[in-house]
């Protein structure tokens, strides 16, 4: 199941003059995927990913303490991480895994 979300549209895109480098976009699209669902978010590069993780958990009725968010580089995402601090690129995916808990027997 794929669930695509869009951020509110802001001012129209500003086209750079010919020859000028494209400006760094303020927003980034991130896909968050667990085993059954994909949700797309558009957030500011400086926004803590806690907001995204909270929103995903709320939508999927997950308990935040029982899931782990991991970047494609295998790095666990913390509450204070932002797309900038994790050097994320537009279209990157955060994979969601269930916590690992064990006792056995």
């Amino acid at each position: 199941m794929s669930d695509r979300s869009h951020s509110p549209t802001g001012p129209g895109p500003q086209h750079p003059e010919a020859g000028e480098p494209a400006p760094v976009t303020e927003h980034i699209n991130i896909k968050v995927a667990d085993r059954d669902n994909e949700v797309f978010f558009k957030i500011k590069r400086s926004t803590p990913l806690k907001k995204l993780m909270d929103a995903f958990c709320q939508r999927q009725a997950l308990t935040p303490t029982q899931v782990r968010f991991i970047t494609s580089e295998g790095q666990k995402v913390t509450a204070v991480d932002t797309p900038d601090t994790l050097d994320m690129e537009d279209g990157d995916t955060l994979q969601v895994h269930q916590e690992q808990i064990g006792g056995s027997v």
Partner: peptide, 15 residues
């Protein structure tokens, strides 16, 4: 389909 998620911080300050 679910609606959009607006994660823009509140104006006037960060978190």
């Amino acid at each position: 389909m679910k609606g959009p998620i607006d994660s823009t911080p509140e104006p006037g300050g960060g978190d």
